[in-house]
């Protein structure tokens, strides 16, 4: 009994040993077949989207095959020429700019706040921290209208500022919490050693904590980028000037068009709009999935 438990610890998970016997090889095959079938079902809509973006518009609605009967690049050509009088490249640039600034803002402001909450002592720490946790769960609708009025008074409607500025003020409390949890895992002895060497809180932050934060900052970067990329609601409200339209808002223009000829460009642009997310996923999937597993990110 004891040996079994000790065996289990280093690396080899228990069922892997069992997998060697003949009977469970069959079970293993059944398991893989089942997983692959589920995977095919789950990825079908995305594969169909990708395939349909190469189909002529008339074929898209009814052809359930992933691969096109008649292969064409015309949809992409149409998108690159512009959608609804708007340049695709402008929309891509706008989306990129907003998401990049959101990443910079979140990494900057949430890291600073998290360090204060995790390591520094100050009188209002407990109430502020509790308040910060509550704001994670707060539906944004309850601050939406006054925020809109503030940005309107400041003349910022139709600019990127209402989407970007709040990120520099650590309003996405989730990331503050994420980084707080991460800092708490860093041994305090490191801080104390720095203190003995004469470093104050600023140097301790800059030379001890910040260099160790990389994994948490990568998670923050990825999710900040993707969430702000897909933040349709805020973009819909604040970006009423066509020059500031993002890819998401450009895609919305297809909603009112029901003719078959619009399906092709709509899907081509859809593919292009989710491409950055897919690339992020492919490159950082370990960070993404582990980030969700350890912190309960909603994803």
């Amino acid at each position: 009994m004891a040996t079994i438990i000790e065996r289990r610890r280093p690396r080899t998970p228990r069922p892997a040993q069992r997998a060697q016997t003949g009977r469970s090889r069959a079970a293993s095959i059944v398991w893989h077949v089942f997983c692959l079938a589920l995977l095919a079902l789950l990825l079908y809509p995305v594969a169909w989207l990708l395939g349909s973006s190469f189909k002529p518009g008339t074929e898209i609605l009814t052809n359930m095959n992933v691969l096109p009967d008649a292969f064409t690049f015309d949809n992409y050509a149409t998108v690159f020429e512009g959608v609804g009088g708007l340049s695709f490249w402008t929309m891509l640039g706008n989306s990129m700019l907003i998401s990049t600034l959101a990443v910079v803002g979140n990494v900057f402001s949430c890291t600073l706040a998290a360090y204060a909450f995790a390591r520094l002592r100050f009188r209002m720490r407990r109430p502020f921290f509790a308040f910060m946790l509550v704001t994670i769960m707060l539906p944004m609708h309850v601050v939406l209208i006054p925020q809109f009025i503030i940005f309107q008074q400041l003349g910022m409607i139709g600019t990127f500022l209402p989407l970007v500025l709040p990120k520099f003020l650590a309003t996405e409390a989730f990331f503050v919490f994420l980084i707080v949890q991460f800092i708490k895992g860093i041994p305090r002895e490191l801080d104390e050693a720095a203190t003995i060497d004469g470093a104050g809180p600023y140097r301790t932050f800059g030379y001890v904590i910040l260099p160790l934060l990389t994994p948490a900052l990568i998670t923050t970067t990825i999710f900040s980028f993707i969430w702000s990329w897909d933040d349709f609601f805020s973009q819909l409200i604040y970006l009423n000037n066509p020059e500031t339209y993002t890819l998401q808002l450009g895609l919305r223009l297809f909603v009112d068009q029901t003719s078959a000829s619009s399906f092709g460009p709509m899907f081509a642009m859809s593919v292009l709009a989710i491409l950055p997310v897919v690339i992020f996923f492919a490159v950082f999937q370990r960070y993404l999935v582990d980030g969700v597993a350890t912190s309960g990110l909603k994803g």
Binding site: C35, L42, D230, L251, V255, M269, A273, R286, V289
Partner: peptide, 27 residues
């Protein structure tokens, strides 16, 4: 805990990342 668990875990997670987009809603 069979081989390939990590791969399936990532692959099944992918829709959670894509699902919030306008593109998938259009699909």
């Amino acid at each position: 805990a069979r081989r390939g668990q990590g791969f399936y875990r990532s692959a099944f997670y992918a829709p959670s990342l894509l699902g919030a987009s306008v593109a998938v809603a259009l699909v």
